[in-house]
Amino acid sequence: MIFVNYLLMCLVFGTTFLAIKVGIDAGTPPLFSAGIRFLAAGGILLLWMVAKRKAKFSLLLRKEMFLTGIGLTFGVFAPLYWAEQYLSSGIAAILSATAPLMILLLQTAIARQRLSLSSLAGCLIGSAGVVLLLLPGLTVSFSKLWMLGCIAVLLGQVFYSAGTVYSRRVVQRFQDTSPIALNAAQMMYGGVLLLALSLFTENTRLENLLAPNAAMSLLYLIIVGSMTGHTIFYWLIAKTNPVFPSTWLYISPLIALCLGAVLYGEQVSVVSVFGGITIIIGIIVINLDNLKALVFKNKSEVKKAGEAV
């Protein structure tokens, strides 16, 4: 069951980038669409948690939820949704995979520690992958908006890294509250901020939202992308550990790259594919110690279970 849910989560997260692209191409204002997605998904999940008595509405009055919402939702998805007007969904997904690299650099800067040899090697490999990924766009058909879109996605991962580091403290501070409820509350704040930004920067028309592709994209992202995907993520954390579910970052971007090319006809160069794979390898090298510990732990648990039988 754990393995099946893990594969389902990777598939869900891998499809969200294409779903965003489909909605934007259908004419949905990107920031407004993102705002509706996270406000609706967060609101439904919070109501569910309150009904199960695993959270209280007073959670929304805590400043920690607002700050986490800026880092994990608003700061990440405002740049991503804007960027996917000019980037393919596959390129956006691969650039989003740089999040662990950003987290490592931020944690190292905060702790004022030197990077380990494997972490340094992973950073260099990941950086080389980013260069390879962007190279075709820079040399073949240079576009300022394309380049700005790439920078925007990378900027979003800086917000994500800060939000992740901060949210770990928040989870420890709210140990009596379900992580699903904490995530729901921060999504609601992020959604409100996205809608506020949309109000001042976009011209929203109802007919654009009711277009079949736009409506289906939004419903998919609310129900499958945000509600189902994140619920499975936190279920896996409860059943395994925090490291294992996070390895979706090694798989989902490549799923997104393939889906964009096969289902949506997105052009992907060989150099960009190689760059994407190089980024994933860099992220794996960075987290090599954690992955080794995870493998050894799983082997130990299987051995104990066998001895018990």
Rank of each mutant, 00 (worst) to 15 (best):
G191A: 12
L67V: 14
W248P: 00
L115Q: 09
G260A: 09
K299Y: 05
W248G: 00
A162W: 07
T177S: 03
Y86M: 10
V50E: 06
K297M: 13
I180Y: 00
L61K: 12
L133Q: 09
S141N: 15
M9V: 05
L101G: 01
V309R: 11
R168T: 03
T247A: 12
I180F: 03
L288S: 14
V270G: 12
F32Y: 15
L138S: 11
L210G: 10
N203F: 08
L8H: 08
N183L: 07
L219F: 14
A78S: 13
V295T: 09
A293T: 10
L95F: 08
Q113I: 15
P79F: 07
S246G: 09
I36K: 01
G282S: 09
R173F: 04
Q85Y: 03
F32T: 10
R37T: 01
I251P: 09
I44L: 13
L209I: 14
T240N: 06
K144Y: 09
G275R: 06
P29L: 02
L145D: 14
L133K: 01
L11T: 14
G129W: 01
K304D: 14
V271Q: 13
C10R: 02
A184N: 07
M216W: 13
A238V: 07
L154H: 04
T28M: 14
I280G: 05
M9L: 15
D176M: 11
A34H: 05
K304N: 10
A109G: 01
I255A: 04
F74Y: 08
G156E: 02
G27Q: 10
K52V: 05
L135H: 05
Y81G: 01
M188K: 08
V130R: 01
F57V: 06
L101P: 03
A97C: 11
T204Q: 03
L209Q: 06
K299H: 07
G282Q: 06
K63N: 12
F13N: 00
Y166W: 10
L115W: 07
I180Q: 11
A162M: 11
L219E: 06
R205F: 08
P136V: 04
I2L: 10
G122I: 06
A305R: 14
L259W: 04
L104W: 02
V309Y: 08
M227P: 05
Q186S: 07
P245Q: 11
L59Q: 03
F66L: 14
L39N: 02
V309L: 15
A78Y: 04
V22R: 06
E84S: 08
V302K: 15
L11W: 08
P212S: 11
L60P: 01
V153M: 08
